[in-house]
Design a protein around this nucleic acid. Structure first.
Length: 727
DNA sequence: GCGATCAGGT
DNA sequence: CACACCTGATCGC
């Protein structure tokens, strides 16, 4: 353990327990030295809030012996009916992910889901002709670039002159300049023509126009978008119709609503919209309930429409912004463009690609390495969307690179053939994402623990894995490489690279600062520091881990007056082990984890002594480790509680996460929330460095250059973030 | 059918 | 909020 246990500047509440649990190895003595400056949990009121609902027995003596016999566990519970229920509870990460999608508390996503409109960067990339380098137009970088880089089109539209035009503007312009468009776009006269038969339908009511044009469509075209496939340019116009704000003259043309519905590939529902006489304005105000009530009962189409509507509203909003004049026109344009390109694409580009295979979209053609690595709002998040290029983008964020070397760090989303040395700092999804067992791009360098996990969980053969041992300098392709414990999760490392150019690079991966690190680092100057800036903002100032652990321990003691209490501790696939292991040690209680989790823990290098605190026999423990997200809300917790009603009358859950301590919460080691018989503690147990720690770390390492790995939105540039660290 | 990937969610 | 992950849909083999 890297942390010391004598931190004494934090005071926190010791909720009085009816019978103080003895601590075999207290992190801090539980006695009068601890100040009670916060009110203790109110036991009586809590119980009285639900009179009759629960009959919570008076607290028995809380034995400190493991495997309590004092009434915590019904004897022989493994065979009792209520216990069988427990089998279906995802008591660990793997339980939940494996088979609980149907369980109420695991299916919240389904209740709140939004239809995802598939956007294929490659296909979208086929709408424009520009410099072709295969870069996805759907990428975050492309979106941002769009606001800065002027697209150039072969037919002469110079973007330098077109700053005020949105992407859609350009599309329309491109189209109308072609001159072969048959619809009314670009026409100055007042006549309205049927876009299909060119008949003047100005004299018809809108409804009649719908009927007319629909008849035309029905008469002349095969189903779906047949008519649109005829002519590239006219298809753009069809597409553009979904933007009546920008082209109000089109609103009265072929019913935009019908076109829009068809454009979603939902032509089968156009009758519904006609029947309900839904006009463009009404369309935009429809809710999902509305859609359901008018007869769109299938979930998929309904979600698709809901999502497209949301996009539409945003477009409309963006358009209204861009059309209003302002001194900050340029700025606004940028954000509008960005927003439009982000939000428009799902529908717009889907259409375009459906109709025009062979053209390419803006961003795909522009490949430009970002000068500032983190101009993207968040490299990691952006990267997820950057995968138009067969899942791997060629543009690798700077934080994934090691200056002066060809190495990559946590860059499996950006697999390229020009690199054969891939470092993995730790086994968290956002760092190994993109790594599959078919990896064939060279060697993967990581800690032993990470290597085991990569081997077991992903199936990477050992031949591809090169274990780095802590503190041992090795030479890789002429570069000296040394790694150290990053104090993040088990197996996490930070890596020092010493290239021949003499400019050492320290890549922290994700890390939680500890003074011990300095022992390894000081004395070897660092030129570039790739820094985990997850909490690089003064608002993130959380206590040391041991303070939080102690808070949790004491809270468990305080809540344990009721023998029918189930304690839940949130955990990631790996991470937060220190918390529940310490709880077990201090309380001398085994902790339940499921077999899959146990197998995982066995990879983490815990000692035998540590491992004895885990049990896969549920009846042996009333402290369960569960996936963090199952504790995310009271709603989920209630589902868990419902399944345990026979066995437990009180649920106490601990959500350990760093962001608990944002903003006003200062350095509190936790806060207690309660709804009925469910208590939820949010505890700022972080495996990333706090702002204070980052500052200290940077000060001590004193690099020439800092490359942030995460760009928080607050300070809107990497430079601002870095300057905060240095002040 | 299955693994990989993606978008959207918590 | 943002941690690190989940779910469902889609794609390609």
């Amino acid at each position: 353990m890297m942390w010391n246990t004598d931190d004494d500047d934090d005071h926190f509440q010791i909720p009085p327990s009816s019978s103080q649990l003895s601590l075999r190895k207290p992190l801090r003595p539980i006695n009068g030295s601890i100040s009670h400056h916060r009110p203790p949990p109110r036991k009586k009121p809590r119980l009285s809030r639900n009179p009759g609902k629960e009959n919570i027995a008076p607290a028995p003596e809380f034995s400190s012996e493991p495997c309590l016999s004092s009434g915590f566990y019904p004897q022989g519970s493994s065979s009792t009916p209520d216990c069988s229920l427990l089998d279906s509870i995802p008591s660990s990460v793997d339980d939940c992910s494996a088979g609980d999608s149907g369980e109420p508390f695991c299916s919240l996503a389904a209740e709140t889901e939004e239809e995802d409109v598939l956007v294929d960067g490659k296909e979208k990339g086929e709408c424009f002709k520009a410099n072709r380098e295969g870069y996805s137009g759907n990428s975050m970088e492309a979106r941002l670039l769009k606001s800065r880089i002027r697209l150039r089109f072969e037919d002469g539209i110079d973007e330098e002159e077109d700053e005020s035009e949105s992407e859609l503007d350009v599309l329309i312009k491109l189209c109308s300049e072609g001159g072969e468009c048959s619809s009314s776009i670009g026409k100055d006269d007042d006549s309205i023509q049927c876009p299909l038969c060119s008949m003047d339908i100005s004299g018809l009511s809108e409804e009649q126009r719908h009927v007319h044009t629909n008849n035309c469509l029905d008469d002349t075209q095969p189903p779906e978008q047949g008519s649109l496939k005829k002519c590239d340019k006219s298809s753009f116009i069809e597409e553009s119709v979904d933007d009546p704000v920008q082209h109000p003259q089109l609103v009265n043309d072929l019913s935009p609503v019908i076109k829009w519905v068809r454009s979603l590939g939902l032509a089968k529902y156009e009758d519904v919209f006609l029947r309900e006489e839904i006009d463009w304005d009404t369309l935009q105000s429809l809710t999902e309930e509305d859609l359901l009530s008018i007869g769109i009962t299938s979930l998929g189409p309904r979600k698709k429409i809901v999502n497209a509507l949301s996009t539409l509203r945003e477009e409309t909003f963006a358009q209204s912004l861009s059309t209003s004049s302002s001194v900050t026109e340029r700025q606004r344009e940028r954000s509008t463009n960005r927003k439009a390109s982000e939000t428009k694409k799902p529908t717009a580009n889907k259409l375009i690609t459906e109709f025009f295979p062979g053209q390419a979209t803006d961003g795909t053609k522009i490949r430009k390495l970002p000068k500032e690595p983190v101009t993207e709002q968040s490299c990691r998040r952006a990267a997820v969307r950057r995968n138009g290029n067969n899942g791997k983008s060629k543009v690798v964020p700077q934080w994934n690179c090691v200056p002066g070397t060809p190495f990559r760090v946590d860059a499996f989303k950006y697999l390229t053939r020009d690199c054969c040395h891939w470092f993995l700092t730790h086994f968290h999804l956002d760092h190994y994402q993109g790594l599959t067992k078919s990896f064939s791009h060279g060697k993967i360098y990581c800690s032993l623990i990470t290597a085991k996990l990569v081997n077991i969980k992903i199936g990477i053969p050992w031949e591809r894995l090169q274990v780095l041992h802590l503190g041992q300098k090795v030479s890789i392709a002429g570069v000296d490489v040394t790694c150290f414990d990053a104090n993040h999760c088990p197996g996490s490392i930070m890596i020092r690279f010493e290239p021949a150019n003499g400019k050492a690079v320290l890549h922290t991966g994700d890390f939680r600062y500890s003074e011990e690190m300095l022992n390894y680092l000081i004395g070897s100057p660092i030129s570039s520091l790739v820094l985990d800036t997850t909490y690089c903002n003064p608002q993130y100032d959380f206590p040391k881990q041991e303070a939080v652990i102690q808070f949790v321990v004491e809270s468990i003691q305080a809540e344990a007056f009721n023998p029918k209490t189930l304690f839940l501790i949130g955990s990631y696939t790996i991470g937060k082990e220190r918390l529940f292991l310490e709880v077990a040690r201090v309380l001398r209680e085994k902790i339940y984890i499921n077999p899959a989790k146990l197998k995982l823990l066995e990879c983490l290098g815990f000692s035998k002594e540590d491992m004895q605190w885990f049990t896969v026999k549920e009846e042996e423990s009333h402290i369960h480790v569960v996936p963090l997200w199952t504790l995310a809300s009271f709603k989920r917790l209630k589902h868990i509680a419902n399944r345990y009603t026979n066995r437990y009358s009180l649920i106490v859950a601990f959500s350990p996460t760093g962001w608990t301590s944002g903003k006003s919460k200062k350095k509190s080691p936790g806060r207690r929330l309660q709804q009925g018989t469910i208590i939820r503690y949010e505890v700022p147990y972080s495996e990333h460095s706090s702002f204070t720690e980052l500052k200290e770390f940077v000060q001590k390492v004193s690099p020439e250059v800092i490359i942030p790995s995460v760009n928080n939105d607050g300070p809107d540039s990497a430079a601002a973030m870095v300057s905060m660290l240095l002040t």
